[in-house]
Simulated assay, not measured.
Amino acid sequence: MKITNYKDAEKKDNPHGVAVNKLYDTEHAQVMHIELKPGEKLKKHSTPVDAFFYVLEGEGIVEIGDEQEKITKDMLVDSLARIPHRLMNESDSVFRFLVVKVPRQTEKTRLL
């Protein structure tokens, strides 16, 4: 059995300049923990695989394609491959979520 606390997980450099920890990374799937401080956001980008976001704490805005919605704790958002998306924290508290990519991403993410 392997147990990983996100605080102890490998920190992942990223073009967004935000806190990302790699929780799980196998040939089949990837799970990243992302923390956005107030005012932080991901740059608009697209990934070559399907993903979903699961909100652990706080509230944020998710933008996928032309749609934008407020999301809060315990919500899951489906994000299809190659659709531009980003998440933003416009609140005054921390916004933490998981990003799960299945199958595992082998091509690079494309910043827009």
Rank of each mutant, 00 (worst) to 15 (best):
L42V: 01
Y6P: 09
M32C: 04
R96M: 03
V77D: 02
H45T: 05
E59Q: 14
D8M: 13
A9I: 07
A81L: 05
V62Y: 01
K37Q: 15
T109W: 02
L111W: 03
E63P: 03
K41Q: 15
K73G: 05
K44N: 10
L36D: 12
Y24A: 09
M1T: 02
E67H: 10
D25Y: 04
P103F: 04
R86C: 14
E67T: 08
L112P: 05
I64S: 07
L23F: 03
T4E: 15
R110P: 03
V94A: 05
K44I: 12
V77E: 03
I71S: 12
E27K: 09
M32V: 07
I34R: 05
M1N: 09
T72V: 11
G17Y: 12
V102F: 10
V94I: 10
I3Y: 09
Y54G: 00
D78L: 02
I83M: 03
L98V: 04
H33K: 11
K108E: 15
Q30Y: 04
Y24I: 07
H16Y: 14
L112C: 00
H16R: 10
L56Y: 10
K2Q: 14
G58Y: 09
P15W: 07
P84C: 13
Q105G: 07
K7A: 12
S46K: 09
M32W: 10
S79K: 01
R104P: 03
K41C: 11
G39S: 12
K7G: 05
P38N: 06
K43V: 12
K22W: 02
L42H: 03
M75H: 12
M88D: 00
V18C: 10
E57D: 08
D92M: 10
P103Q: 06
D66K: 08
K70N: 11
S46I: 00
E40M: 10
V100F: 00
R82D: 12
K37M: 15
M75G: 01
L80K: 01
K7E: 14
F97A: 06
D25V: 04
K43E: 10
V94Q: 00
V100A: 11
T26L: 06
V77Q: 01
L76G: 12
T4G: 07
Y54Q: 01
P103Y: 05
K22D: 00
D50K: 00
G17L: 13
T109A: 01
E10V: 14
A81E: 02
Y6Q: 05
D74Y: 14
H16L: 11
E107C: 02
P84S: 09
